[in-house]
Amino acid sequence: MKIDTDALIEQLTASAAPVRRLAPPMLRALLWLAGIGLVCGALILRLSNLTVFADRASDPRMALELVATLATGVAGVIAAFHLSLPDRSRAWALLPLPFALAWMGLSGLGCYRDWAEQTRNGWRLGESSSCFVFLLAAGVPMALLLLLSLRRARPLQPRLVAAVGAVGVAALSALALQFFHPFDVTLMDLGAHLAALLILIGVFAVSGRISLAGRA
């Protein structure tokens, strides 16, 4: 179907109802993070054993891993909100990368230490399946909430936006898990975590591509 460009402009003008401008992406990202932080904080305070967590966090490696995980989550969400706008640089996609590398590296280091010191425990399976379920149970609702917020910008590159947002959500779920994880990750844990995070990122990226890619 061909339509004359002048006629198209007339049609668009006729249907140009006033619109509410989006707030700046940084503000939207911080509001979203604050909302998620409040809900997760309330649940953690109510359900987790903070004494055990404080004890674990006193280990500098663990503290650094927590900071890196939080930074990956925050950076991923901020980057996704920026990328959802047409005129923001694609370089935003790289923002979570250094933090994610630090998180993976520190997590792997803890795992290696655990494996070296307690070889037998390094292969235990017991907690891994519940971690897997926890990550998905925390990650899926968070991912859906993020999709809903990002959708408002109708991103032109939905796949990229969804993938970067998924990295953020995966990191935030992993951070929440740390409050209910009374031991350092073992090899099996790390495998379960990675599997859950990859599933989360994959599903989010695919569903984001479909749900964010609304056409005119």
């Binding site: 401008r21 109708r154 005119a216």
Partner: peptide
């Protein structure tokens, strides 16, 4: 033009218009 119309709420008048349009 159709895309511009669909995402017109994402333009921030505090920023230059041309890069926004060129990116679309």
């Amino acid at each position: 033009l159709l895309t511009l119309h669909r995402v017109r709420h994402t333009y921030d008048p505090a920023r230059p218009f041309t890069p926004w349009l060129a990116a679309i």
